[in-house]
Each structure stands twice: as structure tokens, then as C-alpha cells.
């Protein structure tokens, strides 16, 4: 079973002993693994699409007749409720995907797969960012699939909007994924993940502009309006909404980028071998 293996001539190495281009190769490897897992879990793709489609086809259709919308930026005229709700549902896909990535991180930590990622010689922040970015790429595919179906439901933003929304999807996806990453560092067991659904996903989604504009919130409760205005998910929704209609919501862009830096910085700190939670937990979990 054991044979002597000739030691091959090492590849050209950098100062750290890693081959040149190691960072790009590692990113490709992490993204390829996420893609393979994604392809093996086609049910996940369908589930991610079914959820917003149910909202679009059933919820939005029902609310269309009872929920009037005045002209709300970026829309230039009155819009149907379906049109209003689509950007929120795109952000919903990214929110669930971010939390799904978080769940996958907790699972990887429980099974031990996370350890092999973290003992790679590349910097830990880069490994975490690569995993985050790979998850965002998957969520963007889902978002475009949803937008394509919505087009047939007569939700048709300008053609260039489909291109303009790409950076917004990347930034919003990264922010929501980074939040998931931060949460995954604090969740010790998979069983605790149900709490994330109840205390993070639902409040973030419902207390946002995904389903109703801010002015409608103010009509019912000023406090609720303020909570919605401060909710980072609101800004993810508005960034996507404005980008789809070829505009930039600078406030939302600033909030999304700021929250991305905050959440990702927190996650890197929590996964840091010297400062985070890992060294304080016996067993490294």
C-alpha cells in the first residue's frame, strides 16, 4: 500500500511558500465547491425560487386591490403592487441565501470541514471572503432566474436595469452574507439555527420596505417607520430597487457598504484564532 513517491520539483513559490496565483486558485476552488454542492442540491435552487414566487403570484395579487401606492421614488408614475414588491423579493432571495450560507458554515463546523478551510495557508479573512463571494454568486443566479419569471408576470424594468442591478446584487448579497457569516460564528449548534429564522430573518424582512414603502409605515407607527428606516435590509431593498430603474440611492449604497464592512469585520474577528470565540471554546466549536 505504501510506495516511495518521488518528490516533484516544486512549483515557483512566493515568499510564503505558496505557488504563484495561489489566491486566485483558492478562490476558484472554493467557488467550484459551492457550485458542485449547489448542483447536487437542486431542491435548494427550486425552494429559493418558489418562496418569492409564491409571494409574487399570491400575496401580491391579493394585496393589489387593497394596497394603493402613491408615486414612490424611483418610480415615475403609479405602479402596480407586483412591480413594487419585486425588488424586495429579490432581496429576500439574497437574505435567505445569506442565512443558508450561515447554516452551511455551522454545518461545516460541526462536521469538521470548516477546520480544513481554516488551516489553509492563505489569510483567514481571504478564505472567509471567498466563501462569502461564492455564496453571493449562487444567490445572483437565483435572483436573475426570479427576475426572468417576473418579466413574464409583466414586471418589466428597463432592459439596462438588469445590468445596472448587478453591482447592487453583489453589494447587497455580500452584506447579507456577511451578516450570516457573523451569526454563524456565534451559533454553536445547528439546532440553534431556528432562532435565526425567528429573530433575524422574519423581523428583518417584515420591518423593511420590501413589502410596503416607508411613508405607509409612518402612517401606522412612527416608531415602526424609524425601525424600518434603520434596518440594513431596507437599504439592500432600496439599492436593488433604484438600480433596477437605473438610479443610485446613495444613502442605501453607503449603509449597505458600511454594514458590509461592519458585519464582515466582526466575522473575521470572531473567526480569528487569537481573539474570537473559537479559542475560548473547548473543542473549537
Amino acid at each position: 500500500m505504501t510506495e516511495a513517491v518521488p518528490r516533484a520539483t516544486p512549483a515557483p513559490a512566493t515568499r510564503t511558500g505558496l505557488p504563484r496565483g495561489a489566491w486566485a486558485i483558492a478562490f476558484q476552488g472554493i467557488a467550484a465547491r459551492e457550485a458542485l454542492r449547489f448542483l447536487r442540491q437542486r431542491g435548494r435552487f427550486l425552494a429559493a425560487l418558489v418562496r418569492p414566487l409564491v409571494w409574487l403570484f399570491i400575496f401580491a395579487a391579493g394585496f393589489r386591490s387593497v394596497l394603493g401606492l402613491s408615486i414612490t421614488p424611483p418610480y415615475q408614475t403609479y405602479v402596480l403592487y407586483e412591480v413594487y414588491v419585486v425588488p424586495g423579493l429579490v432581496a429576500m432571495i439574497q437574505l435567505f441565501n445569506g442565512m443558508q450560507s450561515s447554516l452551511s458554515m455551522v454545518y461545516d463546523r460541526e462536521t469538521g470541514a470548516m477546520r480544513t478551510l481554516l488551516v489553509s495557508p492563505l489569510p483567514r479573512w481571504f478564505l472567509l471572503f471567498s466563501k462569502l463571494m461564492a455564496g453571493v454568486l449562487v444567490s445572483i443566479l437565483q435572483a436573475y432566474a426570479f427576475l426572468a419569471i417576473a418579466w413574464f408576470w409583466d414586471v418589466r424594468p428597463p432592459a439596462l436595469g438588469y445590468l445596472a442591478v448587478l453591482p447592487a446584487l453583489i453589494f447587497a448579497g455580500l452584506m447579507l452574507g456577511a451578516l450570516g457569516l457573523l451569526l454563524s460564528s456565534a451559533i454553536r449548534q445547528l439546532e440553534n439555527f431556528a432562532g435565526v429564522m425567528n429573530f433575524v430573518i422574519f423581523p428583518m424582512f417584515f420591518a423593511s420596505t420590501a413589502l410596503y414603502p416607508l411613508w405607509r409605515m409612518r402612517e401606522s407607527s412612527v416608531l415602526l417607520h424609524d425601525i424600518c428606516a434603520a434596518n440594513p435590509f431596507t437599504h439592500a431593498v432600496e439599492l436593488i430597487r433604484f438600480a433596477l430603474y437605473l438610479q443610485v440611492n446613495w444613502l442605501s449604497l453607503g449603509v449597505v457598504l458600511g454594514c458590509l464592512a461592519l458585519f464582515f469585520g466582526g466575522a473575521v474577528l470572531m473567526y480569528d484564532p487569537g481573539r474570537g470565540l473559537w479559542p475560548r471554546r473547548k473543542g473549537g466549536r
Binding site: P19, A26, G29, I30, R115
Partner: peptide
Amino acid sequence: FQSRALDADLTVRQNLAYHAALHGIG
């Protein structure tokens, strides 16, 4: 590691290719 670290959803080759990539091996 004491706990198994290979991805059960992937083949042996895919697992090894992933870990090679984590060490910068294309």
C-alpha cells in the same frame, strides 16, 4: 483531524482537488 473533514456530497477526487486549491495548487 479527529472529526471527519471530507465533504460527503463530493467524490474523493473533488475533495482532494478542493484541498489542493486551498494550498494554491491549480
